[in-house]
């Protein structure tokens, strides 16, 4: 069973997204195919150059970079949202792919769930 987890909340503001990331890691740990889609303000999770030391948090960029190692299949970014936030693929962390959020994408997964 394949799962798509959608994160549409901005990084650092709440713990919902972090919990979704934990869920993705847990599915990957049990070799369940899982991908993450970032849309809305969520695309800011993928922006390169984050330094969260002064807000006393771990860098989401660095946490996310472990996803491919743990077996998360894809880090997807909605193209409309990337446009709104001025993000080109070169601004995104390695492995992130810009794609279109819509039925064509969601139909490829058995289970689609939003974070939070």
């Amino acid at each position: 069973m394949s799962t798509l987890i959608i994160i549409d909340q901005p990084p650092y503001g709440s713990w919902d997204g972090r919990e979704a990331l934990d869920m993705a890691f847990s599915l990957a740990a049990f070799d369940q195919p899982v991908s993450l889609l970032f849309c809305g303000a969520g695309v800011n999770w993928l922006r390169k150059g984050q330094d969260a030391a002064k807000v006393q948090q771990k860098s989401i960029e660095r946490n996310l970079s472990a996803a491919p190692i743990f077996g998360v299949e894809a880090l997807l970014a909605d193209s409309d949202a990337c446009g709104r936030y001025g993000l080109a693929e070169s601004d995104l962390l390695e492995h992130a792919i810009i794609t279109d959020f819509g039925p064509e994408l969601t139909n490829r997964f058995d289970h689609v769930a939003f974070a939070g």
Binding site: P10, Y12, G13, A41, R47, D51, A52, R84, Y85
Partner: peptide, 30 residues
């Protein structure tokens, strides 16, 4: 906090009147 994401958008406010908190910008790579 998340308000700093506004710096990626065009805002109808004079730059002399618009500020952002540095640690929150840094956290988000902005």
């Amino acid at each position: 906090e998340n308000g700093v994401l506004a710096v990626t958008q065009r805002l109808a406010i004079h730059r002399e009147r618009c500020f952002a908190l540095a640690p929150d910008l840094e956290a988000r790579g902005l």
